[in-house]
Design a protein around this nucleic acid. Sequence first.
DNA 1: GGGACGATTGAA
DNA 2: TCAATCGTCCCA
Length: 169
Amino acid sequence: MRIGKDFYQKDVLEIAPLLLGKFLVRRFEDGRLEKRKITEVEAYGGQEDLASHARFGKTLRNKVMWERGGLVYVYFVYGMYWMFNITTGKRGKPQAVLVRSVEGVEGPGRLGKWLALDKSFYGEDLTKSNRIWLEDGELENFKIKKLERVGVAYSGSWAKKKWRFILEK
DNA sequence: GGGACGATTGAA
DNA sequence: TCAATCGTCCCA
């Protein structure tokens, strides 16, 4: 079953670990359907989180973070990679979860490539889209590992927060 | 308008 | 260890 709107409206720190084990589904233009379990995510909070793109306030790139939860936030980095994020929380509170890995595709850059992301995915509604959405996982007892976020050393004490969640086998 | 750099990766 | 590679953001 596709995950509905309500799921995404809670706080990012509550949602991020819940995303582990859920299925990320993608229907490509040629009709091919891929469905993989999410295995690694990172939570990014509001303007107070100095590791978050929201730290400088609303800009053209990050404005979708201020919208309600359940939308796609994609952005381009290092001149070659599209990062896949999911907005969370209520409208007006900038939050997002970076999906770093799914089963068999490790690393946010590789995931973006595998999903064939581009600018057109910006703001896409995961509860309505016919090309990308999330589905419920199986009922299992997962072990979750919490680690520091990657690549955010510039954010001082915020870099020490263990807001990266990994599905343990 | 200019310059520095990034929520990364793969090759040397 | 470092190049690839370019959009975004800060500052002037």
